[in-house]
């Protein structure tokens, strides 16, 4: 191993410059229970203050030798800032992520407050990114994510209503998506300005197990293109679920990284999109860190690399209640098997 810092490793990977080995990180949530237990922060509290969010991210990163820290952990920060409220489940047993308790009945009723960045937990996320920058910004990469326009729209209006209206009252859905696109462009730039090294766009409501490739092409793709044209590199598009049917469309959105989950047939995807783009994926973020044996972990990570990814990362949020030995074994395997060149990135 060279003296390359974790941050350099991640940034060079994104720039498709040679690295010593594959970095261990994610574009989704990667907070872990062993980490938050060690610092005594209960799970519901990690979402509520900048200090808790940053500390839980740093501890999770340090405990398992991740090359990056990622915040936030839940999908409700923006809808909550729009005034929809949030359920935190403070007294529930076990791990429950925040949810939005009520939504607007129709896309044309959605109101986006001009000062949404000042509302609810948006300042908490800003504060956490700034704290990460201050505490680990020279050594480790800092990641964040934003839901893609259709997925975020599904947090504002019931997804079934949205899907049917995308057929029957398309103009109303398009108008909402366009508003969200503008917001996403600004928010992504804002997160980069305050310290994030990368912003992952998570458009998981648009896989082919939900909407047709035709709808993806007409309704989603032009809007993703607009966002990626406006954002600086690195430009990361993550879609989980069924992506085999839309992988070429994903490749034509202007992203520099395509991220998929374990339902994707990686080797076929790589041959469809070629070697001129970064492909990330796609271990099962629940089974591997929580349930798998050491042998299964080695096999799964090797399979990801053999199938042509440039970074092995989870296909969704890592289920927080990991077994420490599993999480460490995953990252050890990535570093060990990741010493060889990948389709889009060479090695030192």
């Amino acid at each position: 191993m060279t003296d390359m810092t974790s941050r350099e490793r991640v940034l060079k990977l994104f720039a498709r410059e040679p690295v010593d080995t594959m970095p261990c990180f994610s574009g989704q949530g990667m907070v872990t229970v062993p980490a938050i237990d060690s610092v005594g922060i209960p799970f519901p509290q990690i979402h509520l203050t900048a200090e808790n969010m940053a500390e839980s991210a740093i501890k999770s990163m340090e405990m398992f030798d991740f090359d990056a820290a990622v915040v936030p952990y839940d999908m409700c920060t923006i809808p909550e800032a729009f005034g929809l409220g949030v359920s935190i489940y403070e007294n529930a047993e076990g791990i429950l992520f925040p949810t939005i308790p009520k939504k607007w009945p129709s896309p044309d009723e959605v109101v986006i407050p001009e000062d949404y960045l000042e509302r609810a937990r948006m300042p908490v996320v800003d504060g956490a990114i700034k704290l990460l920058k201050e505490k680990i910004g020279t050594t480790h990469a800092i990641g964040t994510w934003i839901l893609g326009p259709f997925t975020l729209a599904g947090q504002l209006v019931e997804l079934d209503v949205l899907m049917k209206m995308a057929y029957k009252e398309k103009a109303k859905v398009e108008a909402l998506l366009d508003k969200i696109v503008d917001l996403t462009i600004d928010l992504g730039r804002h997160y980069r300005e305050i310290g994030a090294d990368f912003v992952s766009l998570r458009e998981m409501g648009t896989g082919a197990d939900l909407i047709s490739p035709k709808m993806f092409k007409k309704l989603i793709q032009p809007r993703l293109r607009k966002i990626f044209e406006a954002w600086d590199s690195p430009k990361i598009l993550h879609i989980c679920g069924s992506t085999d049917l839309i992988i070429e469309l994903m490749n034509d959105c202007g992203a520099e990284v395509i991220s998929v989950d374990h339902k994707n047939t990686l080797s076929e995807s790589r041959s469809k999109i070629g070697n001129d783009i970064l492909l990330f994926g796609d271990y099962d973020g629940f089974n591997l860190p929580s349930k798998a044996s050491g042998e299964e972990i080695q096999e799964a990570i090797k399979k990801c690399i053999d199938s042509g990814v440039d970074a092995v990362w989870p296909g969704c949020d890592i289920w927080p209640d990991v077994k420490s030995e599993n999480m460490q074994a995953i990252n050890n395997a990535i570093k060990e098997f990741g010493r060889v060149s990948t389709p889009a990135v060479g090695r030192l």
Partner: peptide
């Protein structure tokens, strides 16, 4: 057969 997707299922259900 990937002719219909979830929006079509929802409209058929209605």
């Amino acid at each position: 057969q990937h002719e219909y997707f979830v929006p079509e299922l929802l409209m058929a259900a209605d």
